[in-house]
Each structure stands twice: as structure tokens, then as C-alpha cells.
């Protein structure tokens, strides 16, 4: 740990990694809470994996993969949202299809791109140590957008998540807010890809909020706790992986996952002895 702290003061890339992890935790905790209480993890997973398609296409045409990811994430969110709202299609089938097709498109384009594709693993599993200053600005901008919109429409989002039918009777534009919520989830996915990669995104998005929701019973409180937990996991993951030179993203997820299991056990035990 002291080794990590010494290295942190010395290396700019570690400072950027730390800042990136902490910044990403903000949007992650807020949007992860919506994903958990609305039970749309599968949906968020579909968006996350479809993102590879956009990254691959952008990569092939020589653009920044992250820009492709942003476009693909928003498009996937809108398609999935539209299917869910308007078509009586089997939602899980559509999500699974978008999930796989997005990845297939991504792999096809990435493998067709000339040169050595060292970045592919980075997209899939993240490379927080490679976060650049430009990435930090992007994550900060996405945070700002998420906080602004959630702050502005907190009640509408709450009403839509809690009881969409009632919200509709009250004249709330349920479909519009639902799609906006999905787009914000998509933006969060993109910013977390830098940290843990698109395969691990869903765990980092949902586990902090899921842990918090075991102990707290207001949406806002869960959001705050999820942000703090996310920051804790990314920071601790960074510190623990640095010394033994482990892959940071997976270590972050293992920390979050084991904490989740631990709290599940504690709650289960507490419930049994409480009777």
C-alpha cells in the first residue's frame, strides 16, 4: 500500500487512473441505482456489449474508438427502449440479439483494421492505467450531464421507475423520460469502459447500488452510497493491483463482487437471527 502511495505521488498515469476511477464512480453510482431498482441489468448489458460495434467501426475508419462507443451506446439504448415501449416483441430476445450483433460488428471491423490490435483487450476488460487527460475530461463532462439531468428530472424519473402507469395518468411523458434514462445509462456505460472494459461494466454499475439498496430505503441515499462505494472499489482495486501487477479492472470487480456476497450473507444471517 505504501508502495502504491509512493508511486501515486510520482506517476502522472496513476494519478489520472485514480481521478478517472473516482469520476466514473459518480455517474456509475447514480445511474447504477436506476438500473438496480428498475431491474434492467440485462438491458444495460445489451447496451454495453453493443458498444463494441461502434468502437470497431470508429477504429476501422481511424476515429477515436470512444466516439464510436458514444454513438453506438446511444443508438443501442434507443433501439432497445423503442422495442420495449412500442413493440410487443420478446424483449430479452431483442436485447440478446443487439448484444451479440454489436459485438460481432465490432470484432469484424477491429480484425479488419490494419496493424496490431493491442487495444481490443483494453476495450473488453478496460485499462484504467491508460486513461488520458482527454478521457478524464470526457468522463467529467458525462458526469456533469448525468447529474444535471437527474437533478432536473429526479421526480419524473422516480415516478417512471416506481409506477409508470400512474405517472402516465398524471400526464408525465413516460416514454420520453424512459428513453432519456436509457440514454444516460448508455453514456455511463461508455465512461466506465475506460475503467473496467465493456464486459465488466455491468458489474461495476450494479454492484455498488445493489449493496447500498440492501441497507437503505430511499433512492437518493442509495445513489450517494453507491457513488461512495464505487469510488472505494475503484481506488482499492487500483491500489491492490498495483503492487502484484494484476489487471486493475478485474480486481475492482472482484472487490465489488465479494463485498456484495458478504453483505448478502450478513443480511441473510441477520434476518435469521433476528427472528
Amino acid at each position: 500500500m505504501t508502495e502504491f502511495l509512493a508511486a501515486l505521488s510520482e506517476h502522472a498515469f496513476l494519478q489520472r487512473a485514480l481521478a478517472g476511477g473516482l469520476l466514473a464512480s459518480i455517474g456509475c453510482g447514480v445511474m447504477g441505482t436506476y438500473v438496480v431498482v428498475q431491474r434492467i441489468s440485462l438491458l444495460a448489458g445489451g447496451i454495453a456489449h453493443a458498444v463494441l460495434g461502434g468502437m470497431g467501426v470508429a477504429y476501422f475508419f481511424g476515429h477515436a474508438p470512444l466516439n464510436g462507443a458514444l454513438v453506438a451506446a446511444v443508438v443501442a439504448a434507443l433501439i432497445i427502449g423503442f422495442v420495449k415501449l412500442k413493440l410487443r416483441e420478446r424483449e430479452d430476445t431483442v436485447i440478446a440479439a443487439i448484444w451479440a450483433v454489436g459485438m460481432a460488428v465490432g470484432i469484424v471491423f477491429i480484425t479488419k483494421t490494419p496493424g496490431y490490435n493491442a487495444d481490443l483487450m483494453g476495450y473488453l476488460f478496460g485499462n484504467i492505467l491508460m486513461i488520458g487527460t482527454r478521457d478524464l475530461w470526457l468522463i467529467a463532462a458525462l458526469d456533469l450531464a448525468i447529474l444535471l439531468l437527474v437533478g432536473l428530472f429526479y421526480r419524473q424519473f422516480l415516478a417512471v421507475c416506481f409506477d409508470a402507469e400512474f405517472a402516465r395518468v398524471r400526464g408525465v411523458r413516460v416514454d420520453r423520460y424512459y428513453l432519456l434514462l436509457l440514454v444516460l445509462v448508455a453514456l455511463t456505460v461508455v465512461m466506465l469502459i475506460q475503467v473496467v472494459g465493456l464486459i465488466l461494466v455491468i458489474a461495476l454499475m450494479t454492484l455498488p447500488a445493489a449493496i447500498a439498496s440492501r441497507f437503505l430505503s430511499s433512492l437518493f441515499a442509495i445513489m450517494v452510497a453507491a457513488v461512495l462505494l464505487g469510488g472505494l472499489f475503484t481506488t482499492a482495486g487500483l491500489a491492490l493491483s498495483y503492487g502484484p501487477d494484476l489487471a486493475t479492472g478485474p480486481v475492482i470487480i472482484l472487490l465489488a463482487g465479494s463485498t456484495y456476497l458478504l453483505t448478502a450473507a450478513v443480511r441473510g444471517f441477520g434476518r435469521q437471527t433476528g427472528r
Binding site: 421526480r155 422516480l158 405517472a167 400526464g171 411523458r173 430511499s218 442509495i222
Partner: peptide, 24 residues
């Protein structure tokens, strides 16, 4: 058809009954 474990208090849930179209 109701989520019983949704994190919301009684007062917050009742307030949502005031929600109209445009108000924030």
C-alpha cells in the same frame, strides 16, 4: 403489479401524486 421493494418512503410516494406535466 407493484414492486414492493422499491426504495421509496410513504411520504415520497404520496407526493408523486402531485406530479403534473411540466413542473420540476
Amino acid at each position: 403489479g407493484f414492486e414492493r421493494d422499491f426504495p421509496i418512503t410513504v411520504a415520497q410516494a404520496v407526493q408523486l401524486g402531485r406530479l403534473g406535466s411540466g413542473r420540476l
